[in-house]
Simulated scan of single mutants.
Amino acid sequence: MCDRFIAEGYHVIAMDNLITGDLKNIEHLFRHEHFEYYHHDVTKFVHVPDRLDYILHFASPASPIDYLKIPIQTLKVGALGTHNLLGLAKEKKARILIASTSEVYGDPLVHPQTEEYYGNVNTIGPRGVYDEAKRFQESITMAYHRFHGLETRIVRIFNTYGPRMRLNDGRVIPAFMGQALRGEDLTVFGDGSQTRSFCYVDDQVEGIYRLLLSDYALPVNIGNPHEITIRDFAEEIIKLTGTDQKIVFKPLPKDDPMQRQPDITKAREILGWEPQVGREEGMKKTFDYFRTLSREDLERKEHRDFSGRNRR
């Protein structure tokens, strides 16, 4: 997102406490005159002295490994962090885009998922800390829109992948690719019949950019509607990486969604957007990135504390 906005001629201020992020992803921008970085936790009061035209709120752990380790922080960034940034947008008279997620649909009873579907979420289950944080985030955003007249946008992001992903964070693609590159068998949870739909990062950024600049305030799904079972996807990874690993099966985590496929009718009609990068092309680019990582990166098991510093 930072790269895209700088390329479009904007001055970009990035803010992150690095609880799950990595400065390596933006270090190439530090020398750019139109880029600034603030090391800050948005659950604390946020002050930016200069004019702001747009605010994009993406602060939240997104991996099950992360949000199950730091559940309170996950809830706080969805609630307090969103409240702080909505207040900042109100003060600056800025338009704000909130990054929501397909997880607001929970384990869906409607397929594919449309924006009008209210979801099937276990509020007190282990995944509820993420799902409900995002659902509250949408609610308070719409409250600011309706009560204060704030210009708001809500994107519901489906599974997204591409270069600069973090290995060993528990999400499907980096988990499979990390295992393949280390010569390990690929772990599939359940029987592998659950489905996911993977969107390449460039397509995701384009959809978000168009939504921000649109005049549509209600949530919009941005994702790739081409669905695949996890078992078939594991087979694709083995073929892509040229390895001969086996697939091993482990118990399905509680409340893990069995189906995930976006209905992108609204994105097509309102934004003129749909994915352009096929899974074969996108996965090759992603694998080429992971192959550049060092053996240390491949073997690293990250544990993070709330300061955002890495502890091995």
Results as ranks from 00 to 15, higher is better:
179 Q>N: 12
214 S>Y: 07
47 H>Y: 15
160 T>W: 05
33 E>K: 15
220 V>M: 10
14 A>S: 10
155 V>M: 15
43 T>D: 00
106 G>R: 06
10 Y>N: 15
104 V>I: 14
1 M>G: 11
98 I>H: 11
281 E>M: 08
111 H>F: 14
138 E>D: 12
149 G>S: 05
178 G>K: 04
141 T>D: 13
40 H>W: 03
174 P>K: 09
232 D>W: 02
163 P>D: 11
183 G>F: 12
41 D>S: 01
236 E>D: 13
290 F>Q: 12
287 F>G: 05
221 N>G: 08
269 E>D: 09
103 E>M: 10
1 M>A: 11
306 F>N: 05
16 D>T: 00
120 N>A: 07
138 E>W: 07
216 Y>Q: 09
285 K>H: 06
128 G>A: 06
214 S>L: 09
2 C>Y: 03
193 S>F: 03
177 M>T: 09
120 N>G: 04
226 H>L: 07
21 G>A: 07
18 L>I: 01
173 I>A: 03
99 A>N: 13
167 L>T: 01
204 Q>Y: 14
109 L>V: 06
242 G>H: 08
233 F>V: 01
289 Y>H: 11
117 Y>T: 04
3 D>A: 14
297 D>Q: 08
139 S>C: 10
118 Y>E: 14
24 K>L: 06
169 D>H: 02
75 L>T: 10
178 G>E: 05
156 R>Y: 07
133 A>M: 03
240 L>K: 05
32 H>K: 14
253 P>H: 09
20 T>L: 00
32 H>W: 12
107 D>N: 15
199 C>F: 08
246 K>T: 03
194 Q>C: 10
128 G>C: 06
253 P>I: 04
14 A>M: 05
116 E>V: 11
291 R>T: 13
188 V>R: 11
248 V>S: 13
82 T>H: 07
207 G>A: 03
311 R>Y: 02
191 D>K: 09
18 L>N: 03
116 E>Q: 15
100 S>C: 04
289 Y>R: 11
113 Q>F: 09
204 Q>A: 15
217 A>M: 12
129 V>P: 02
166 R>I: 01
258 M>V: 15
67 Y>M: 02
298 L>I: 00
241 T>I: 06
15 M>I: 10
197 S>G: 10
56 L>F: 09
223 G>S: 08
106 G>K: 05
109 L>A: 14
195 T>I: 07
20 T>V: 01
95 R>P: 02
301 K>Y: 12
215 D>S: 11
267 A>S: 13
259 Q>L: 14
21 G>W: 01
88 L>G: 06
74 T>A: 06
6 I>T: 11
248 V>P: 13
19 I>M: 00
151 E>W: 03
294 S>L: 12
284 K>L: 06
92 K>E: 07
155 V>K: 14
184 E>F: 04
172 V>G: 04
100 S>A: 04
200 Y>N: 02
58 F>N: 13
183 G>E: 11
113 Q>M: 15
121 V>L: 10
87 G>C: 11
307 S>F: 00
48 V>H: 14
10 Y>E: 13
95 R>D: 05
21 G>N: 09
190 G>N: 05
2 C>I: 07
209 Y>V: 03
105 Y>D: 11
273 W>C: 11
9 G>K: 06
304 R>I: 00
245 Q>V: 03
80 L>D: 14
280 E>W: 00
158 F>T: 01
293 L>S: 07
88 L>A: 08
152 T>L: 04
46 V>K: 06
45 F>W: 08
131 D>K: 03
57 H>D: 11
